[in-house]
């Protein structure tokens, strides 16, 4: 199991004066979907390119299955990658594209038809990819990644351009691949895509690691308790004395951080305060993410 992981040790990539990835140390574990998040330009793609040996790190190392990618035997049997939906010759048919890749790793020819059917491109297999939509291109890229039935999958923005049905299909595919014990690293700049898919999150901002923790943890850290009372000021000071952080919401309810529902209820009881509403609010991943990356957005529109 240990050998399946992707391991980054102090990975750094500098382009002239710009630091794209800044001493990143992360281990991607098998058996779960790891979401790789960050705003545009935060270094996700550069990191993936370094893992795949396409770019040479300025410092540090990236290993897959304990070895640098370039030293893997038959890499497609171990690692499947979707980097760029344009990574193909537009004049080639989907079938020829996949066949050439399969042959280069001595994979059985039948595998080409199998993955074409799996991603639902059977009807256009012998058409030139020039005419493919972005969504079809993504499916072809996913087919290429799955060709070698790999233990490790790296997918860069796989749902870009997919329709809702396609997005759900990718989610279920990633889920089932992870459940089979594979290592799945999937990048995105959109939180909503990750919320239902990833078990674990690695968040980048300006090339630096902002978070590397389970999804539940990240959401939990930003969770709070909402309590409404006709005697809000009394309850608020009682809660503060118990060490909670309390904020007044627009509708007059209190937002309490640092205590769970039971503790808030107990505090209210001891203070003799009536409670009309008490519940836990889970932060959306979106909110948690914005809080994490707030200072680290590379490209931001100016306020109007």
């Amino acid at each position: 199991m240990l050998a399946r992981v992707i391991e980054l040790r102090g990975l750094t990539k500098r382009y002239r004066s710009r630091v794209a990835v800044d001493s990143l140390t992360v281990t991607v574990e098998p058996g779960r979907v790891t979401g790789f998040l960050g705003p545009n330009g935060s270094g996700k793609t550069t990191t993936m390119r370094c893992i795949l040996g396409l770019s040479r790190p300025t410092a540090g190392t990236a290993t897959v299955l304990g070895r640098p990618y370039r030293e893997l035997d038959r890499p497609m049997r171990h690692v499947g990658a979707l980097l760029d939906p344009r990574a193909r010759h537009p004049g080639r048919t989907a079938h020829a594209h996949l066949l050439a890749l399969a042959q280069s790793n001595a994979l059985p020819r039948d595998r080409v038809e199998e993955v074409i059917e799996l991603v639902g491109l059977g009807s256009v297999a012998h058409e030139r990819v020039r005419g493919f939509s972005l969504g079809m291109g993504q499916r072809l890229g996913i087919a290429a990644a799955l060709l070698g039935d790999p233990d490790v999958l790296l997918l860069d923005e796989p749902v870009n351009g997919l329709d809702p049905e396609g997005i759900r299909w990718v989610r279920e595919l990633l889920r089932s691949l992870a459940d089979e014990g594979r290592t799945v690293l999937v990048s995105s700049h959109l939180m909503s895509e990750m919320e239902d898919t990833a078990d674990h999150l690695v968040v980048l901002g300006r090339g630096r690691l902002l978070a590397d923790r389970p999804m539940a943890d990240l959401l939990g850290a930003h969770a709070a308790v909402r309590v409404r009372s006709p005697q809000a000021p009394v309850l608020a000071s009682a809660l503060q004395r118990s060490g909670a952080r309390v904020e007044l919401e627009i509708d007059g309810a209190l937002r309490v951080e640092g205590l769970d529902c039971a503790q808030v209820g107990d505090v209210a009881f001891l203070a003799g305060v009536r409670v009309h509403e008490l519940g836990r609010i889970t932060a959306s991943l979106e909110a948690a993410y914005l809080e994490l990356t707030g200072d680290d957005v590379e490209y931001r529109a100016a306020a109007l």
Binding site: E71, D73, R74, T93, H97, Q103, S104
Partner: peptide
């Protein structure tokens, strides 16, 4: 270098690429 794949396979793959454009 990927020793696992015979060189012949890479040649066959390149031939597929050449003939398919």
């Amino acid at each position: 270098m990927s020793r696992g794949v015979p060189f012949r396979s890479v040649v066959v793959s390149e031939w597929t690429k050449l003939r398919s454009v």
